[in-house]
Design a protein around this nucleic acid. Structure first.
Lengths: 110, 110
DNA sequence: TGACCACATGTCGAATCTGACATAGAGTCT
DNA sequence: AGACTCTATGTCAGATTCGACATGTGGTCA
C-alpha cells in the first residue's frame, strides 16, 4: 500500500491524525476493516469451539500467543493473509470462509 | 509463517526441492493456493470488464503494472491481503467476494 | 521490417508483517 | 494475600511483501 495512504494509519494503529480523517474512512478502508473483524471473530469462535487457549492455538499455527490475541482483536498489525491462513489450518472450508465473509451479521452463526 | 514451512517454497516461488514434496502439498497449502487463484481470476475478470489495462489498474490502485501482472498470475510474492484490498478498491462487495471464494467453479460466472 | 501496445518476468531497496519475548490486566482458586 | 491461568499490549529483529524499474515476449498495425 502507498505511503500516503499508510500514513493515515499513523502511529501504532488505527489512530488518525485528525478527527475529520477519523470520520472520513474511505469505503474501501471501511470494508477492509469490516472484513478483518469478521475473520477475527470467526477465528476466535473456532478456537473456542475446540476449547483451545490462545497458547494452544499458537502452538498449532506455529505462532505465538500474543499474535493470536492480535489476530482475534483485528489488530492493524495483522494481515488478512495471516487470518485466512490460520482459518484454513483450522480446517475451515472455502464455503465456511465465504459464509464468514458474507453473513449479514458480522458474527455469523456458523 | 515459519521458516521451516517457507523453506519448502524455495527459490523464487512454487518450485519445491523434491518431487515428493511437490506431490505432498498439505491440505492447507492447497486450499491457500486455490483461494489465491480464485481471487486472481476475479481480479482479472473485473479489470477486463472495465476495459482497463494492467497499467490503468495499477494507477488506480497506486501500484505498478508488474505487480498487477503478478497478482493476476497468483504469484507467490503476492499476498491474499493485496489481492483482496485490490478487489475492494474495485468496488467488489463482501457478497461478491464470498462468491468468488466459494463458487463451485474456480472461475465464478459473476 | 519497425514501431507500438499489453502483458510477463526478474531484481532490489524500502516498507510492512511476523514470531518471540516481556509484561500487564483480569479472573479463579485456596 | 499469593499462586495460577488466560488474554491483552508493547517492542523489536528478522522475514516477507511492496512499488518501481528494466527488460523480454507476443500481437497488431502500417
Amino acid at each position: 500500500m502507498r505511503e500516503e495512504k499508510r500514513r493515515r494509519l499513523e502511529g501504532k494503529g488505527w489512530k488518525f491524525g485528525t478527527a475529520q480523517e477519523f470520520l472520513r474512512l474511505s469505503d474501501e478502508e471501511a470494508a477492509y476493516i469490516d472484513l478483518k473483524a469478521r475473520l477475527a471473530t470467526g477465528l476466535r469462535k473456532r478456537r473456542r469451539r475446540r476449547s483451545l487457549t490462545q497458547a494452544d492455538l499458537a502452538k498449532r499455527l506455529q505462532s505465538s500467543q500474543s499474535r493470536i490475541a492480535k489476530m482475534e482483536a483485528g489488530d492493524p498489525s495483522v494481515s488478512l493473509d495471516l487470518l485466512i491462513r490460520s482459518l484454513l489450518i483450522l480446517g475451515t472450508s472455502r464455503r465456511e470462509l465465504s459464509r464468514i465473509i458474507s453473513a449479514r451479521s458480522p458474527v455469523p452463526a456458523a
